[in-house]
């Protein structure tokens, strides 16, 4: 039995360069911030010249001068993608903020204003979650007459339900928690409890909700624009670019759709990952992983 006295050492597992949840989140946050800054600053610095048509440089494949190539009117696709992304970002940001506002109002109302309101909100949530997203989006955008305003309202109206549900559940749970009930017995007012006990729990949920809604809003904006119910064709939104390039794909100009599509995908993926990691961090069960 000479081999029995070996020591258990699990540290070889941790010696691998495996990042923990916080480090991953910081990394993802840095990537998302860099992308965001890059697009905003790039879009701002962009000269209109690049967006102009230039018939001497029509339909060029990607090169150093035109990394994303040029289209059938000789417009630089990199510049167009950048501009498109800034439009998408703006629309996405507005839509997700409005959406979070809806979610907060309806979630709070459901949790605090009695059974009838709760029933009504829950019913609405179920309806919206049950209907296919894109159909509702198109209907609302169409009803609002298309354009930027229509897209923002349509995206905002369709994206609040899951967050509203989270907020409703959180507030209901907090309201019946021992420490909130006890706070009343210690003589604290309802307002004091709302700001001191409830708010610190809701703010992280709202922030994560915002970050998670953002990529969805961008994606759905692009989708309905692509289908022709969204932003006007005169705006260089990513959805417009993709929709236009469809007509030229058969001529072998693959770069027209690939690069704008990819840049949209990278952006969406980065914010999605950021939101997911933040969500796991505010959950005590997974915070220390």
């Amino acid at each position: 039995m000479s081999y029995t006295d070996t020591t258990i050492n699990q540290s070889h597992i941790s010696q691998l360069p495996r990042l923990n949840r916080r480090q991953i989140t910081v990394l993802v946050m840095a990537i998302a911030a860099a992308l965001l800054l890059g697009v905003v600053i790039g879009g701002f610095l962009l000269s209109n010249e690049k967006l102009m048509t230039n018939f001497e440089e029509r339909s060029l494949s990607p090169s150093i001068e035109h990394p994303f190539g040029t289209d059938w009117l000789g417009r630089d696709m990199f510049a167009r993608s950048l501009k498109g992304l800034t439009v998408s970002l703006g629309v996405g940001m507005l839509a997700s903020t409005v959406s979070v506002f809806f979610a907060l109002t309806l979630g709070l109302a459901a949790a605090t204003m009695g059974r009838t309101v709760d029933g009504a909100v829950t019913w609405l949530v179920d309806i919206f979650l049950g209907l296919p997203h894109i159909v509702v989006l198109i209907l609302i955008a169409f009803a609002m007459g298309g354009g930027t305003r229509g897209v923002i309202i349509a995206v905002a109206i369709t994206h609040w339900p899951s967050l509203a549900r989270v907020i409703r559940a959180e507030v209901l749970q907090l309201r019946t928690s021992e420490y909130v009930q006890l706070s009343r017995r210690l003589g604290r007012s309802r307002w004091w409890i709302a700001t001191r006990h409830l708010l610190p729990h809701l703010v992280p949920q709202l922030l994560v909700g915002l970050v998670l809604l953002f990529p969805h809003a961008i994606l759905h904006e692009a989708a309905i624009t692509f289908l022709g119910f969204g932003l006007s064709p005169h705006q260089p939104a990513v959805g417009v670019i993709l929709s236009e390039s469809m007509r030229h794909l058969s001529t072998g100009q693959w770069w027209l759709a690939l690069f704008p599509g990819l840049s949209l995908l990278v952006m969406v993926r980065a914010f999605d990952a950021l939101g997911d990691n933040l969500r796991l961090l505010i959950d005590p069960h997974t915070a220390q992983e």
């Binding site: 928690s177 021992e178 420490y179 909130v180 006890l182 006990h197 610190p200 729990h201 005590p284």
Partner: peptide
């Protein structure tokens, strides 16, 4: 542990 606000 249930009678204290975990964020305080």
């Amino acid at each position: 542990e249930k009678a204290v606000n975990p964020r305080w």
